[in-house]
Each structure stands twice: as C-alpha cells, then as structure tokens.
Design a protein around this nucleic acid. Structure first.
Length: 446
RNA sequence: GUGGCUAUAGCUCAGCAGGUAGAGCACCGCGUUGUGGUCGCGGGGGUCGCGGGUUCGAGCCCCGUUAGCCACCCCA
C-alpha cells in the first residue's frame, strides 16, 4: 500500500483541534448574526472567465475537469479563490430578490494554487462580511464592518488584535500631490516596508521611476501612525513641505481621505477601545479599493501577517451601481497559529460527557438503556464498545477525555465516577447531570 | 513559477569510516484474575520516500525523481 502522506497546503485537524476551529467558526457566526448579517453560501465553482479577471490571480485558480474529458475539452469552471468574486456574481444574479443595503456574511472554504507555507494554505476557510448598497453607501458603514470584526476577534481565545486602517483617497491625493502617477505601483512597494526596510523600498521606487523627493515624502508618510486624529496633523505638515504639483484636485482628495480616516478610527475605537489605529503604510494589493483599507494583526504574532483584511470599493459589479465595504477573516491562518502556538486547546476531543461501562455482553442492554435516558435529557454519552475489564474501560474513557464513567449496577442505575477526581457515587440516570462546563468540549485559553 | 534545506517505527529524532537499524513517546500484554492514571518487566511494529548507479557490501556516496519544509512572488 502506498504510504499515506500529507498533501501540502490542505490542512486537516484532529478531532481535538477541530473543536477549536469549530468554536472559532461558531463565535464568528454568532457575532455576525448579532449585527444583523444574513448568511449565504455560494457554490464552490464559478465560470473560469469570471474568476480569471486579472491575470495575476488566474495563475492560482484550480480548474475542474472530468478524468474522461477529451484533450481538447477546456475547463469551464474553477474553484473560487476568495468569497468576493462569487458574492459579486451572486448579487448580480439575485439582485431582484435582495434588499439593499445588503448585509451578508459567508463562511466557506476557498482554494488557491500557490506554494503553501506556515499560515498559507491551498484550501482554507474565509469568513467574510460585506455591506453592499444600491448606488449609495454612507461612509459610516466603513466603521460598522470594522466594529463587527473587531468584536468578533475579541471573543476568540487569542491575544488582542489591532486593526490598521488607511484610506485610499488620502494616499492617492498625497501621491498625486508629490507627482507620482502610478499610485498603485508605488503603494505596492511601500507595503513592503516591513520586509525590505526603507532602503529596499527606496530602491524599488527608484526602479519604478519615482523621484528622490517624492520617495522621501511617501516614505515619510508611511511612517505616520496614530490611534487618534494626531495623524491628520502629521499628514498636514508633511503635505506642506512636500507638495510638488499645484493640483487642487489632489489636495481635495487628500482632505477628504484625512477626514474619513479620522472619523473611522474614532468610531471603531469608541466601540472597542484600543482596537484600531490609523496606519498610513497599509496598502493592500487589490486596486479596486477606493476608500478605507484594513489589515489586522495578532499581538505577538505579527509575523503571521494580516488575519483580517478588506476595504471599501466603488462597485461590486462591473458597470457600477453597487458600492460596498467588506472584511475577510483568514480563519485557517488564525486557527493554525492558535493550535501551533498553543493559544487555545479543546477540553476534550469527543462530545461525550459520559462513558457508560458494559459489565458483560449479556447485560449490554442495561448500559444502552442508561445511555438513552441520559441522552433524552441532552447529556452526550457513549457506551463501551467492549465489555473489557473496568480498568481498560476507564482508560478508554480517559484517552478520549471523557470526564465521567457510569458503572451499571445490581441495584438502581449503578454509580457514576468522575475519573479526574476519583469521586464515585450512586446515581439516577433520570436525574444525574454533569456540571454545565462538563457537558460538552470547551475551548481553553492558553 | 524561482531558490535553499530535508526525507529512517504511528510521532519526534539518533545512526555518519559505507559492514544489512536504534532511542524516547505512543500502542499491546503481564505484575494488579472487573475501577485507569504512577512504577517495573516484556512485546509488536521499518521494502531507511521512490528509481537507477558506484561497491564484495549502501540508511550513509553519486544521478534522477517524487514529496515535505522554508524563503521569494503574492496573499487570509
């Protein structure tokens, strides 16, 4: 038999680890629902031509074909690589049946054919929220979606997170003002400040034809960060010393961006103090963002990269008319770090709170009956698969992390033992109940 | 897609002058004949990723290949 080996980039968890992942997913659902987001699920595939809109992304698309397909039969569909593309198609297709502004959440797996490494997978969960308007979408929604995510992350058994927010208008206005034409390209270089350092970014910008003084100005801009509106004054000062081009449009754009970002950060921090920071270095590769852009980092785990990113866009649908703002949590990235770093672990691997021992195969029915009575009252339990020596049955329960073993007895229903403390007492299967915290697996912090 | 490193028991790894494999953990059994966890003793498990080559002889050297990990690219 061929050796079983892991497939790189396609993570699989043990039952115990899956408890942690399921807990994260359920917390996210809960918070999204509390904020009134409706859940949708889209099919796993989209037509290839819809997915491969930009050539860069198309390289990582997994296409679907039949083994029996003829050689000249081209793949028609591919697995989605994010949840935004399918959502855009969904909105376009179902717009008649949707109420706008449309608030939806969507938690599904996505697939990307890139080289995996720590925190980067080929198959992984994303949890997206978006609010999409019909023709208009008020600016305060940019704060609302951020607050939803910050609240959701705060409920997870992880260290604090900080959401770094920038504004495309601010950046574009500033860049135009210092004479940069390829704003997106320059921004992509600035985004690498962490990795390349100021000198590395400077070299890249030079190669892209950005002038020395403009480079100085935007590197300086990228250094600006604040958790309140202090950044606005810093930008203002820098603007006056850096301006190269008398472009009134650029300055208007800059001012709009500054005001929007200041209001946004203030609103998010008012809702969840200390959760957001204005960070003028945040770039985001995708060039369809037009307003707020977000990246979120886990304290002490900044090396993991952003665990929740997104931004505002002018229109979800080609042709316009559907402005929106959305954020996406990389659930698998987050969970893999939680598990690897031991940030959280499950109290046990199985749902069973009680392991009902079997005295002998002849009396198995008595054990089954006790189990049924416990289940009838919502207590998860399982019956021993073999009538082995009690010592072995206890060991079997212990290995699964099941806290109680029930021994059927001659009189009454027998006794139940807490195998952690050794405490054992006579019990009635219609009345006995474990403490709530023992009823199912729980997720323990640290 | 580019580059570097790695591949030995279920897991983590040792083996290094080339002389046909070992530890810890896990698992099973016994001590302890129906109440586990400790301890002691014993046991099962390996085509040394795969294919070829050099050699009297290859886990070890050479070539190829596949897979994994890390970095780049890009991103959750």
């Amino acid at each position: 038999m061929a050796r079983v080996r892991p497939l790189s980039g396609f993570p699989e968890w043990t039952p115990e680890d899956r408890v942690v992942e399921a807990h994260v997913l359920s917390q996210l659902r809960h918070v999204f629902s509390l904020h009134g987001f409706a859940e949708i699920e889209t099919r796993a595939v989209e037509p290839v031509e819809r997915l491969s809109g930009d050539s860069e992304a198309s390289k990582e698309i997994y296409t679907l074909g039949r083994l029996g397909a003829s050689d000249d039969e081209d793949a028609k569909v591919g697995l989605h690589f994010d949840l935004t593309v399918p959502f855009a198609r969904y909105v376009e297709e179902h717009q008649a049946g949707l109420a706008f502004p449309f608030r939806r959440y969507q938690i599904q797996k996505v697939w990307r054919g890139e080289r995996p490494q720590e925190g980067r997978f080929r198959e992984f969960y994303q949890a997206d929220i978006d609010v999409v308007g019909r023709d208009v979408l008020p600016a305060h929604v940019e704060a609302e979606v951020a607050i939803v995510m910050v609240e959701a992350l705060a409920r997870l058994p992880i260290p604090a997170t900080s959401m770094h927010i920038n504004n495309r208008q601010l950046v574009e206005g500033f860049y135009r003002g210092v004479g940069i034409s390829d704003v997106a390209g320059a921004l992509r270089s600035v985004d690498k400040l962490d990795k390349l350092g100021a000198n590395g970014v400077r070299a890249e910008l030079n190669a892209k034809g950005v002038g020395e003084s403009a480079t100085d100005a935007i590197l300086e801009l990228a250094r600006i960060t604040s958790s309140d509106d202090a950044f606005a004054y810093a930008v203002d000062d820098l603007w006056h010393t850096s301006i190269q081009v008398g472009d009134a449009g650029a300055e208007d754009q800059l001012r709009e961006g500054i005001a929007a970002l200041a209001a946004l950060v203030a609103r998010v921090n008012a809702a969840v103090p200390g959760s957001a920071v204005a960070d003028l270095r945040i770039a985001r590769g995708l060039d369809y963002y037009t307003g707020a852009v977000y990246e979120t980092f886990l304290d002490g785990h900044e090396d993991l990269g952003s665990i929740c990113s997104g931004g505002r866009y002018d229109s979800l649908v080609a042709g316009g008319g559907f402005p929106g703002v959305g954020l996406s949590i990389g659930v698998s990235r987050l969970v893999s770090r939680m598990l690897a770093a031991g940030l959280a672990r499950a109290s046990r691997a199985v749902p069973s709170a009680v392991f009902v021992a079997v005295t002998s195969e002849e009396t198995r029915a008595a054990s089954d009956a006790i189990a049924m009575r416990l289940r009838a009252r919502g207590i998860p339990c399982e019956v021993a698969t073999s009538a082995a020596k009690f010592g072995k049955q206890i060991a079997a329960a212990d290995r699964r992390g099941i806290p109680y073993v029930w021994f059927p007895g001659e009189v009454g229903d027998g006794e139940v033992k807490d195998i952690r403390s050794g405490q054992q007492d006579a019990a009635d299967a219609d009345a006995w109940r474990p403490p709530t915290e023992d009823l199912g697996p729980t997720v323990l912090h640290d």
